[in-house]
């Protein structure tokens, strides 16, 4: 009896999971249908699996280009966040004076500021840098990466700082006695120990930067520079939406995410949990 009950619950759960995934199913089946088929029955399986709409969608959203842009912005931003935030957090944790505490508290306190409060003045500052220092901060990947670095720094410094506090300092002292300078001590001894936090930050930042919409939409206007979320927008005009084409486009943007999710699921679940718990 108890066994049968368990089986029933498991079957129920599987049914629930299938139901949970049904939006993805809808996108999948309708990405193969022509307009008429789609409006006949949106739930039905397509008659033929033609990839016509996929190639059309790829062209319309410049998939290869925007995918490359997203990849570039995401990887470079995260690499910089990890390198600079770990160095900063280590110094702030190890030289525990009033200045360090003040800087650290500033990083932490600003986490509560919503992006909407900063976005307009931020672009005034970026405009000022462009006009007076002649560094192209607006409508460039470099500028976007710079801003991502700024917005990602608080959480990364916070997570690294917490972890470093729990690592005994003796190992670093031994390295110093052996003649390592600060730079060598950090990269040879400390950074490898920080790996769990590094993985957590990588995971959290991939999800954030890859999907980020508002900040890139404010800075990137050149069509050749758009990232995936921005290029997906091209299917959703003001007047009519060609849903079959849009579905193929949406499927194209979802597939890489699902592949990444399946490949790194273990790290993702752990990273997301670790990141949230320390908040």
């Amino acid at each position: 009896m108890k066994k049968a009950g368990r089986l029933a619950i498991q079957l129920l759960l599987i049914a629930f999971c299938l139901f949970y995934l049904f939006p993805i199913y809808i996108v999948f089946v309708n990405s193969f249908k022509n307009r008429q088929e789609l409006y006949e029955n949106a739930l039905a399986f397509p008659g033929t699996f033609s990839l016509r709409f996929y190639s059309e969608a790829m062209e319309k959203m410049r998939f290869a280009r925007s995918f490359g842009n997203s990849l570039l912005v995401t990887t470079v931003s995260i690499a910089l966040i990890i390198v600079l935030a770990s160095m900063t957090a280590w110094m702030l944790a190890r030289r525990d004076n009033r200045l360090s505490r003040f800087i650290f508290m500033t990083y932490v306190a600003t986490m509560i500021i919503p992006f909407q409060t900063i976005m307009m003045p931020l672009f005034q500052v970026m405009g000022w840098i462009r006009d007076t220092l002649h560094i192209p901060m607006i409508d460039t990947h470099g500028g976007l990466i710079y801003m991502n670095l700024g917005f990602g720094s608080s959480m990364a410094v916070f997570l690294y700082h917490g972890f470093i506090k729990s690592v005994p300092v003796s190992l670093e002292e031994a390295a110093t006695i052996d003649g390592c300078n600060r730079f060598q001590t950090f990269w040879k001894i400390v950074f490898p120990i920080l790996k769990p936090t590094t993985v957590t930050i990588m995971i959290l930042d991939v999800i954030w930067i890859w999907n980020d919409y508002l900040l890139p939409s404010l800075t990137l206007s050149n069509i050749d520079k758009k990232t995936i979320p921005l290029s997906t927008q091209t299917f959703f005009g003001v007047f009519t939406i060609e849903w079959n084409l849009a579905m193929a486009g949406l499927m194209l943007t979802i597939i890489p995410v699902i592949i990444f999710y399946i490949a790194a699921q273990k790290y993702i679940v752990k990273g997301v949990a670790a990141g949230a718990i320390k908040m």
Binding site: Y107, V125, S153, F186
Partner: peptide, 28 residues
């Protein structure tokens, strides 16, 4: 010098992206 080398780069970016915009935002 080491302290500055480790802390300044990120803090400079952070100040220009978050701290300054927040304060001049109050002005705006």
């Amino acid at each position: 010098a080491w302290y500055a080398l480790f802390v300044l780069p990120l803090t400079l970016v952070f100040v220009t992206v978050v701290v300054i915009p927040f304060f001049i935002g109050i002005g705006y």
